[in-house]
C-alpha cells in the first residue's frame, strides 16, 4: 500500500430515496495526495454524506469518485473500506475490547500475523503519544475523551491506509483538548502524510487544519474550494463571507507567524514575550493588550531577533 493517494470527486451526487433534493449535488473537487482537505459547512449541508460517499457507507446516485485513478465503484466494498482509515466523533471505540484489540481490529481481519500486529499496535500507540505499557490493556471507558480520540486515530491508521476520513473527530472534546488534538494531528500528519478528508462545522478548525477548505452549502453545493488564506481574504460570495465571519481579517492573521515577517531591528533591552513561532494574531493581541507601540520578538531559543509594530502587521495582512 502506498503512503498516500489523491481523491477525485467527479460530479459526485447523492439523492436519498424519497427526497427530491440531492444531499450532495454534483460535487467535483480534487484532493492532492498527502493533503488535508476540510469539508466545511453548517449542519445539513451534506458534508458528512460527501465524506461517507468515499468509503461507500453511502452509495453514489450518480457521478464518480476516484482514488489514485481508480473508481470506488470498481472495487470490492469491504476491501475499499479496509484501505481507508475512518475516524468518527466520540471515536466509536469498541467498549468490550482493550485499546490494543481496538487498534488491532483491521490488521486482524486482514489476517496479519500476531507478531506483526503487535508490533504495529506498539508503534501506533507511541505515535499518538500513549505509552504502550500503560495503555495497551486498558479499556476505552478508562480513558479520557482526548485519549480515546487518539486511539481512534491510531485504529484508523492501523493497516497504513493511503486515505483518512475524519468525521468531526474533535467535535465532542472541550475547547482546550480540541485545540491540543488539532496540533497533535497536524504533527502526526507531518509524519504520515495521509490524504485526509476532514469534516468540520468550525471555521477556525478548518483554517487551522486544512491545506484546502471546501465550503458547502445546503444541498451539498460547493461554494468555494481554496486555501484557507484565499477563503479568508477573498470569499467567493456573500454566503461564504458571512460563514467565515466578520472577523475573517483577524482569522487570516492566524495563518502567518512572526518568523515569516521582516521584523524591525530590536530596540531596548526589554525581555521579549513574543516568539517567532507565534501568529500575527497573537502579536497583535499582545500589542493591543500592552498598549505598546513596539514589542520585541525572540527566536525559539529566547534570543531577541527583532521587534514588531501594529503597522508591520497591517502591511503583512
Amino acid at each position: 500500500m502506498q503512503s498516500a493517494a489523491d481523491i477525485v470527486f467527479d460530479a459526485a451526487t447523492k439523492t436519498y430515496a424519497g427526497s427530491a433534493e440531492p444531499a450532495v449535488d454534483a460535487l467535483s473537487l480534487t484532493v492532492p495526495a498527502g493533503e488535508i482537505c476540510v469539508l466545511l459547512g453548517a449542519s445539513g449541508c451534506g458534508k458528512t454524506t460527501a465524506l461517507t460517499l468515499v468509503n461507500r457507507l453511502t452509495e453514489l446516485t450518480s457521478g464518480d469518485i476516484r482514488i489514485d485513478g481508480r473508481s470506488i465503484r470498481d472495487q470490492d466494498v469491504i476491501e475499499l473500506r479496509r484501505s481507508i482509515g475512518y475516524v468518527i466523533q466520540q471515536a466509536g471505540l469498541f467498549p468490550h475490547m482493550t485499546i490494543e484489540e481496538n487498534i488491532a481490529t483491521v490488521p486482524q481481519v486482514l489476517g496479519w500475523k500476531r507478531s506483526r500486529t503487535a508490533d504495529r499496535v506498539r508503534e501506533l500507540l507511541e505515535l499518538v503519544g500513549l505509552p504502550h505499557k500503560e495503555y495497551a490493556d486498558r479499556y476505552p471507558a478508562q480513558l479520557s475523551g482526548g485519549q480515546r480520540q487518539r486511539v481512534g486515530i491510531a485504529r484508523a491508521l492501523a493497516a497504513d491506509p493511503p486515505i483518512m476520513l475524519m468525521d468531526e473527530p474533535f467535535g465532542a472534546l472541550d475547547p482546550v483538548t480540541r485545540e491540543h488534538m488539532q496540533d497533535e494531528f497536524l504533527r502526526l500528519h507531518e509524519q504520515v502524510r495521509k490524504t485526509t478528508l476532514f469534516v468540520s462545522h468550525d471555521i477556525d478548525e478548518a483554517v487551522r487544519m486544512g491545506d484546502r477548505v471546501a465550503i458547502l452549502a445546503q444541498g451539498g453545493r460547493l461554494l468555494q474550494y481554496d486555501s484557507p488564506e484565499r477563503i479568508l481574504r477573498a470569499p467567493a460570495d456573500d454566503y461564504v463571507a458571512r460563514f467565515v465571519g466578520t472577523d475573517r481579517g483577524l482569522k487570516a492573521l492566524t495563518l502567518r507567524s512572526l518568523g515569516e515577517l521582516k521584523l524591525d531591528p530590536a530596540t531596548g533591552d526589554d525581555e521579549a514575550s513574543l516568539r517567532t513561532g507565534d501568529t500575527l494574531r497573537t502579536a497583535l493581541s499582545a500589542l493591543l493588550a500592552g498598549g505598546a507601540e513596539r514589542l520585541p520578538v525572540a527566536d525559539e531559543s529566547g534570543k531577541t531577533v527583532g521587534s514588531v509594530t501594529v503597522d508591520l502587521i497591517r502591511e503583512a495582512a
Binding site: 461517507t52 468509503n55 457507507l57 469491504i78 476491501e79 475499499l80 473500506r81 479496509r82 484501505s83 481507508i84 475512518y86 468518527i88 466520540q90 466509536g92 471505540l93 469498541f94 467498549p95 481490529t105 483491521v106 481481519v109 485504529r155 484508523a156 476520513l165
Partner: peptide, 15 residues
C-alpha cells in the same frame, strides 16, 4: 455508532 465504525472499517456483516 459502533456498528457504523465497524462497517466503515471494512468489517463484514458477520464480523
Amino acid at each position: 455508532d459502533l456498528v457504523r465504525a465497524g462497517r466503515g472499517m471494512g468489517l463484514t456483516e458477520w464480523q
